[in-house]
C-alpha cells in the first residue's frame, strides 16, 4: 500500500505520518501543497497535523484552497481513502468533505496530553483491524479541536455510524472529564457518509512506538493496509 502525505506550509506532523505508514510496512511519499496532480498509484492520502498557513483566518481555511486540494477532493469523491489528522481534520471540515467544524477548546487552553479513545465503528477502512469498543491511548495536541455541528447534523452522523472515535475514560466511559476540548457528544473522529474520508483530532502517528508511550496508533495504519489488501483481493 502506498500512502501520500501532503505537506502544507506549516505542517509539522507530515514526517511522523510517513513514519506511521512505513512502520506498518507500507510505502509513504511526500506530496506538496502546490502539486496539481496526484501520483496514480497512491491508495491513501493523509492531510497531516500542524498549523497550515499559520492557522490564519480560521484553522484549515486557507489550506483548503491549496492547488493539491482540488485533486484531494476529486480523489475522495472517486472513493479514494483520505485521512485528516488534527489540522488535516480541520482542513477536511473546511473543504466540506466532512460535516461540522472545529472551534476553540472549551477551556480556551491548548491541550497536549494522552487521551483514551473508544472505537465506535470498526467496520471502516480506518479501524477494521480492531474490535468495536477497543480502547486506544493516543496523544492530542490542539487549541481548536472542539467538534461542533448543528444538532440535526450530530443526530444524522450518530444514526449513520459516522462517529468513529469518542473520547472516553481508560475504562471506556464517555465522561465530561475525559473530553479534552468540549466536543459535542465526546466526538474525537468522524467519517463521511460513504466511509472513505475520516478526520480525527488525536495523533495516531505519534503513537506508533512503545518507546514513545503507546503504539495504539498503529491500528489506523494497519487497518488501512488490511482494507487496501482486501480490496485488491476482491
Amino acid at each position: 500500500m502506498k500512502i501520500g502525505v501532503v505537506t502544507f506550509p506549516g505542517s509539522n506532523c507530515d514526517a511522523d505520518a510517513r513514519y506511521g505508514a512505513t512502520v506498518t510496512g507500507n510505502e509513504a511519499v511526500q506530496l506538496w501543497h502546490k502539486d496539481e496532480t496526484l501520483p496514480i498509484d497512491v491508495d491513501v492520502i493523509i492531510l497531516p497535523g500542524g498549523f497550515s498557513y499559520g492557522d490564519y483566518l480560521r484553522t484549515g481555511a486557507i489550506a483548503r484552497f491549496s492547488p493539491i486540494m482540488n485533486e484531494v477532493i476529486r480523489f475522495a469523491n472517486d472513493g479514494g481513502l483520505v485521512l485528516g489528522i488534527c489540522n488535516g481534520f480541520q482542513i477536511l471540515c473546511e473543504s466540506g468533505l466532512l460535516p461540522g467544524a472545529l472551534i476553540r477548546n472549551e477551556n480556551l487552553r491548548f491541550v497536549c496530553k494522552d487521551v483514551h479513545l473508544r472505537v465506535e465503528n470498526s467496520a471502516t477502512p480506518f479501524t477494521c483491524a480492531v474490535k468495536l469498543g477497543t480502547m486506544l491511548r493516543v496523544p492530542v495536541a490542539h487549541g481548536e479541536g472542539r467538534y461542533t455541528a448543528p444538532q440535526e447534523t450530530i443526530d444524522r452522523i450518530e444514526a449513520n455510524g459516522q462517529v468513529v472515535y469518542r473520547y472516553a475514560s481508560p475504562t471506556g466511559e464517555t465522561t465530561a472529564d475525559s473530553n479534552p476540548n468540549g466536543s459535542m457528544n465526546n466526538i474525537a473522529g468522524i467519517m463521511n457518509e460513504r466511509g472513505n474520508v475520516m478526520g480525527l483530532m488525536p495523533h495516531p502517528e505519534r503513537a506508533c512506538e512503545p518507546l514513545l508511550g503507546s503504539a495504539d496508533g498503529v491500528s489506523v495504519f494497519a487497518s488501512l493496509a488490511l482494507h487496501v489488501a482486501h480490496s485488491i483481493l476482491i
Binding site: 483566518l57 484552497f65 467544524a101 461542533t148
Partner: peptide
C-alpha cells in the same frame, strides 16, 4: 467562500 465558515 473564504472569510467566514457558515457552520460556526
Amino acid at each position: 467562500k473564504l472569510l467566514t465558515n457558515p457552520v460556526m
